[in-house]
């Protein structure tokens, strides 16, 4: 599903050029659950931004679903993104002014789904995430665990092929964190590809494979579980 080859990304200030990704290459198969680990500044987040089509690489190739996307402009990336990728962030990033229902509904609005169908789909996903009873609340009225469940609901409502999770449990206590990891595992078992950046060895164990990075390069890869192509 994803093939990156010699991916490069630099950050330049006036005097220093920092290399964030240094000729990074790997593949992710459809249906796989991959954890990316490494110390701060190793390039994990940069990688995630590029994989999420939020940012553009400076060099190398990135093939997504058979399409070379390196060099796509913002509009094309956005289009691809909204139909294929869901995001889960450490800090949830729910929109404060919208209710739980409206937050989850948002991606459907942007992909042009009709209101009646939106309601059905949002209700279904809220039911699944067990926060139906909170649908009219605003994000600030929810606990952290509930907020992250809303964020996951929002990420999956469009049935994306890929979910990118950036430290999804970072702001949660362990029991809430485990709940979120269970959710992600369920989604993965249902066929969604997941790439997750994390610091937590515990969370990483939920994945099939851990890619460890240092200074913008892959250092090791541990396969934790046998993954069979779907």
């Amino acid at each position: 599903m994803i093939t990156i080859t010699d991916l490069e990304k630099y950050y330049a200030t006036e005097e220093v050029r920092t290399i964030a990704l240094n000729k990074l290459s790997f593949k992710v198969k459809e249906g796989e659950f991959v954890a990316v680990m490494g110390p701060s500044g190793c390039g994990k987040s940069t990688l995630l931004n590029i994989l999420g089509l939020l940012d553009d690489p400076d060099g190398g190739s990135f093939v997504f679903n058979g399409i070379e996307v390196a060099g796509f402009n913002e509009r094309k990336r956005a289009d691809l993104r909204k139909h294929n990728i869901g995001f889960v962030f450490q800090s949830f990033n729910l929109i404060d002014e919208l209710t739980v229902f409206e937050n989850v509904e948002l991606p459907l609005i942007y992909t042009g789904v009709k209101p009646a169908e939106r309601k059905v789909r949002v209700d279904a996903v809220l039911e699944k995430m067990q926060i139906m009873h909170r649908r009219k609340h605003f994000p600030q009225q929810l606990s952290g665990g509930q907020q992250q469940r809303v964020a996951v609901a929002r990420a999956v409502v469009n049935n994306p092929k890929l979910i990118l999770a950036d430290e999804p449990t970072g702001n949660l206590d362990s029991s809430n964190g485990n709940e979120v990891m269970d959710l992600l595992t369920e989604l993965n078992e249902a066929g969604t590809t997941i790439i997750m950046v994390t610091h937590s060895e515990h969370d990483a164990k939920y994945s099939h494979r851990i890619i460890r990075m240092l200074d913008g390069q892959k250092v090791t890869e541990n396969v934790l579980a046998e993954f069979k192509s779907v």
């Binding site: 999420g52 939020l54 509009r75 956005a78 289009d79 993104r81 909204k82 139909h83 995001f87 990033n93 729910l94 929109i95 948002l106 991606p107 942007y110 992909t111 929002r154």
Partner: peptide, 9 residues
């Protein structure tokens, strides 16, 4: 930013 991540242009 979030709106844009979710597909707003």
């Amino acid at each position: 930013g979030m709106n844009k991540v979710l597909g707003a242009n």
